[in-house]
Amino acid sequence: MTTLGAVFRPQLAPERLRPLVRAAEEAGLEELWLWEDCFLESGIAAASAALAWTERLHVGVGLLPVPLRNVALTSMEAATLHRLFPGRVTLAVGHGVQDWMAQVGVRPASPLTLLREYLDAMRALLRGEQVTADGQYVRLDKVALDWPPAGVPQVLAGGVGPRTLRLSGESADGTVLDASASPDGVRRARLLIEEGRAAAGRTARGRHKVVVYLLTATGAGAADRLRAELVREGRESVPDLGVAGDAGAVARAVQQLADAGADTVVLQPTADEPDPEGFVRFVAGEVRALVPRAAQSAAG
């Protein structure tokens, strides 16, 4: 099944979240994804509000930067959200932007080591285990959550580079790929993730979920807005990156990512999207109608 979502970009003021969330709920959007980008908005605070304002909408946070957050705190917040809103939350953790981490004095010498230690500790805490760890970065002394989730939730990792993608396969339950991933990039990521899973002996545990952002522009000036954002990000030369056009064009781009191995495709509006509420209605209504819910991934 191809799940379809949309992003609330934190370039929008926090007070813009409620009307967009209500529009998403009313339109039947499956998933709304939030970012914890420095120094814009808190992913956990925004997720909690979005979940409280809705009854059905699934909310993802992709991603929470691990250098910025003690693993015990993140696990407490995750457990609270999963108990308050069971089945409606997905959280991803990752390196964060290293320049931002340096600005607040938490840039690690080894981001990979930190992420590995963090994933191992967080997943154990959310399983209800008592954790003692004396790692390079994660140090816990008999820490256990008093209110672990009723079920064991998935913890996803954000990844771009080969080593991080292999690590995600080894230690996470799923992977979030940013909007720099073309269909070929998704295929390559799947291979690297599976290498990590094989190395950790995890290939028998079922499918590793892959979430992919797709930079999307629609309506008046869509092609120009998409091109401008790709130029700002230095990605204008990457083939098959982003999509501009009507619902048919967007649905075809979604299907290409699904065929490459994406389980969830999250449409990411441009930073200057003129109608954010209209964008989520477009995704939930027009695009959803054209994307098969039972699309099969070629990556299997």
Rank of each mutant, 00 (worst) to 15 (best):
Q98V: 06
P67Q: 02
Q256V: 07
A271E: 02
V59T: 07
G128R: 06
T80Q: 14
H58W: 03
P292E: 13
R207G: 11
V280M: 12
A24Y: 00
A200N: 00
Q154S: 12
T218M: 10
G261C: 06
S297P: 03
R227I: 11
G245S: 13
G234L: 06
A222Q: 08
A247L: 05
R293K: 12
F8Q: 05
A157P: 01
V93N: 09
L34M: 01
E30Q: 10
A157N: 04
R207T: 03
S297D: 08
A295L: 14
G285R: 15
V283P: 15
V160H: 11
T264I: 15
G174I: 00
S75F: 09
V231G: 01
P292V: 11
V138Q: 04
E170S: 07
A13Y: 04
V160R: 05
P274K: 00
A271C: 08
P108G: 11
A45W: 03
A6M: 05
R69N: 14
E117D: 12
A220G: 10
E30P: 07
A199H: 04
T113Y: 04
A47G: 09
A72E: 00
W53H: 02
E15L: 15
V186D: 11
A294T: 10
P14D: 07
G196I: 12
V143M: 13
A251S: 06
G185L: 04
G60V: 03
A47Y: 00
S237Y: 07
S168R: 00
I44F: 15
L12H: 15
A72F: 00
L32M: 00
G248R: 10
G245Q: 13
I44C: 13
W33K: 04
N70E: 15
L167R: 10
G221A: 07
D246V: 05
I193E: 05
A244I: 13
A78T: 09
V280G: 07
A49S: 03
V160D: 15
R187P: 02
V93H: 02
Q103P: 06
V243H: 01
G221D: 06
R16E: 10
T2D: 02
D246H: 03
A13P: 09
L267W: 10
A49W: 10
G151T: 13
P111K: 14
L57E: 01
L4K: 07
V106Y: 11
S182D: 02
A249S: 06
E129K: 04
A217H: 01
R123P: 12
L267A: 02
D240R: 02
V280N: 14
G28K: 04
L63C: 11
L167P: 15
L226D: 12
V176M: 08
E233M: 15
D184M: 12
G278M: 05
S42R: 00
V138E: 11
P153W: 15
A6L: 14
L267Q: 06
G87L: 05
R235Q: 10
A260Y: 14
G161E: 14
L51N: 04
L177S: 03
G206D: 01
F39H: 06
A109M: 15
D99K: 06
L81C: 14
